[in-house]
Design a protein around this nucleic acid. Sequence first.
DNA 1: TCATGGTAACAAAAAGGTTCGTAATTTTAC
DNA 2: GTAAAATTACGAACCTTTTTGTTACCATGA
Lengths: 106, 106
Amino acid sequence: MKELVSRCPIEEVMQVLSGRWPTLLVYYLQDGTKRFSDLRRDNPTISHKMLTLELRKLEDAGVVQRTQFPGYPLRVEYDLTEAGQKLVPLLDGLGEWWLKSDEATG
Amino acid sequence: MKELVSRCPIEEVMQVLSGRWPTLLVYYLQDGTKRFSDLRRDNPTISHKMLTLELRKLEDAGVVQRTQFPGYPLRVEYDLTEAGQKLVPLLDGLGEWWLKSDEATG
DNA sequence: TCATGGTAACAAAAAGGTTCGTAATTTTAC
DNA sequence: GTAAAATTACGAACCTTTTTGTTACCATGA
């Protein structure tokens, strides 16, 4: 992880949300509880390494909740935390902004 | 630039805003017109190559306006476009979300 | 000869992918 | 009835690709 160059909270958020996967994962987790294999099906091109890495990052950031159940085969469930759910409309806002600015500039 | 894996506008925005620099540049351009060297002073650790690359990306995305004046030494000015200015409160929203979720999780 | 804003070529660093291995229980095969 | 294989989520090692940094260079007018 790169070091921060400002004391700006926006830079900190972007450290978590930057990249192809974090917002997609949040997006798919909107639908409710998902297991690791569900998320891989949702994102067929993500490698399991990236998926674990990104899920850990989101967990550390308090966006995603990980619940592991005892027994085998392993069963692990992922959900958005409350904070994660509050993030969704903000991301939607960005999406709308993009669509509008796109139709404005062509 | 990586290919998109979904048809989601959020993924498209993130392709533009991902990384350390785009939001910082937008942030500094809030203050008004800046020249290339101003932005380097604002972000002392960015290399000039990255600065040109990121500015081009933001220009292509319709966030930043580049104005080149005739004569030497070259004089080039950068401003936020209208769309760029509308982006600012959205980024602020993310920053506030981060601060709140951070104090909630510790 | 310095200043400004930029490009091109190469080097270093970071991100990402692939493969293999692991756990404990259930399923299937012989 | 015993052995082999599948299951699920993940870590470690290794290798490739992408991103970023470094250096050198260009233009020209004061």
